[in-house]
Simulated scan of single mutants.
Amino acid sequence: MDTLFTKIINREIPADIVYEDEDVLAFRDIRPQAPVHVLVIPKKPIPTMDAAEPEDALLLGKLMLAAQRVARDSGIAESGYRLINNCNPDSGQEVYHVHIHVLGGEKLGPLNARPAQA
């Protein structure tokens, strides 16, 4: 099943690509939640992190290193950045193709505004 990200990989729809190698593609999010908001995706379609298989370990490691490179190239590595992967509906996953959000460029608030449970 083709997703929006598959169409970006295949250049069927445009994207502001900031990094690419043989396994990974990174592009700016069209609805940024921070001054720097880049999505890093594997070119192999894996619907969710929950669907990843042991043989995907090397690819997922490359995904994380590509996210690190995007942060460095964007100038946010030293001040700090956040990596987020949403998995399945309750997390807010909208596109069912594994992706890492790289967020930064400003001081980011806490992820969970709920008070700690006793």
Rank of each mutant, 00 (worst) to 15 (best):
P32Y: 09
A34G: 03
M64V: 15
A34E: 07
I30F: 08
A57Y: 00
N88E: 13
I17G: 07
V95H: 05
D2Q: 11
A71G: 10
E22F: 03
I8D: 00
I17V: 15
H97Y: 01
V102T: 09
V24S: 04
H37G: 02
A116D: 06
A15R: 13
T3I: 08
G109A: 14
H101C: 06
D2H: 15
I8V: 09
V98L: 09
D73Y: 07
D50G: 12
D2M: 02
V36K: 05
A66E: 02
T3S: 14
R11N: 10
L108W: 13
T48R: 11
K43T: 09
V38A: 03
L25M: 07
D50Q: 14
D2N: 15
V40A: 05
L39H: 05
D2I: 02
M49S: 11
N85K: 00
T6E: 01
A52Q: 04
V38Q: 02
V102M: 05
L103W: 03
T48L: 04
P42C: 09
D23G: 06
K44P: 04
L111D: 14
T3P: 01
I41C: 00
S79L: 10
H37Y: 03
A71T: 04
G109R: 00
I9E: 02
G104L: 02
P45L: 10
V24D: 00
D16S: 13
L58K: 12
Q117K: 15
G104Q: 11
M49G: 01
P115Y: 01
D29P: 00
V95C: 01
A34Q: 00
R72A: 13
E12V: 13
H97P: 03
A52F: 08
A52R: 03
C87S: 14
I46N: 06
V70T: 09
P45R: 06
A15V: 05
Q68G: 04
P14R: 03
V98P: 08
H37P: 02
V95I: 14
A113P: 15
V95M: 06
E22R: 07
G61D: 05
K107V: 13
I30D: 11
Q33M: 11
Q117R: 13
E53Y: 10
G80S: 06
I76P: 01
K7W: 07
R72T: 14
P42D: 08
G61N: 12
I13T: 14
G75A: 15
I30T: 01
L103N: 00
N86K: 02
D2T: 10
R28P: 01
F27Q: 08
A113K: 14
L65H: 10
V98Q: 07
H97E: 11
I76K: 00
I46H: 09
D56E: 02
E78K: 06
E53Q: 14
E20I: 08
I8E: 01
D29I: 03
M64H: 10
L25A: 04
T3E: 03
D16C: 05
P110D: 12
Q33I: 02
R82T: 08
G75D: 08
E53A: 10
A113T: 14
D21N: 14
N86Y: 04
L59C: 04
G105C: 03
S91A: 15
E55H: 10
E78V: 07
A66K: 12
E94K: 12
R114M: 15
P89W: 13
A116K: 10
Q93E: 11
L59K: 08
V24I: 15
A113Y: 11
G109K: 06
E22K: 10
H101K: 06
H97W: 09
S79F: 02
G104W: 07
A66F: 10
